[in-house]
């Protein structure tokens, strides 16, 4: 494989949210966890499900369905928490299932079309089409803007 070909590929993790496939770059993913005990944190937006004990580190988790305004779904056996690591913090993302790591050629990624399902377009970095599958690439910085609520009570 030539140098160029290598650069032209992006490895992504594919996960599902209400039967649509989404993808995030593998570089930021720390791990994929089964669902575990979540401690609710009061006074936070409803999509913040709370915090989990991730091997001794208290990590906040958010429900991506709620973040995107999709309909709620009960957590079940296939529910996964994808832990992503941003510059200064780690966050867990609750998704329906996460099952694939695939290579996406860069030329397969297009800027977002006008409408992609119901997910607000500011969260979308682009759309990739690989072998008849369509993935929505997420703009994590936007999805995970820190919650900085001033005293609310």
């Amino acid at each position: 494989m030539t140098e160029n070909a290598q650069q032209a590929i992006k490895k992504v993790i594919v996960f599902e949210l209400s039967d649509k496939e989404y993808a995030i770059e593998i570089d930021v993913v720390q791990g994929i966890e089964r669902i575990m005990g979540i401690t609710r944190v009061p006074g936070t937006p409803s999509y913040v499900k709370g915090v989990i004990n991730l091997r001794g580190i208290v990590t906040p988790v958010i429900d991506l369905r709620e973040r995107f305004g999709l309909e709620k779904k009960e957590l079940d056996e296939s529910t996964r928490i994808i832990v992503v690591s941003l510059e200064t913090y780690d966050v867990g993302l609750i998704v329906d299932t996460a099952n694939d790591i695939i290579d996406v050629p860069l030329q397969a990624i297009e800027a977002q079309p006008e409408v992609v399902g119901s997910v607000s377009s500011e969260f979308i970095a682009g759309v990739a089409k690989v072998e008849n599958r369509l993935f929505v690439l997420l703009e994590l910085e936007k999805v995970l803007e820190p919650i900085n609520r001033v005293e609310s009570v």
Binding site: P42, T44, V48, V51, T88, Y89, L144, P146
Partner: peptide, 9 residues
């Protein structure tokens, strides 16, 4: 609580 959740009342 980490930098994601700051200033929780």
């Amino acid at each position: 609580l980490g930098d994601y959740l700051t200033n929780v009342f």
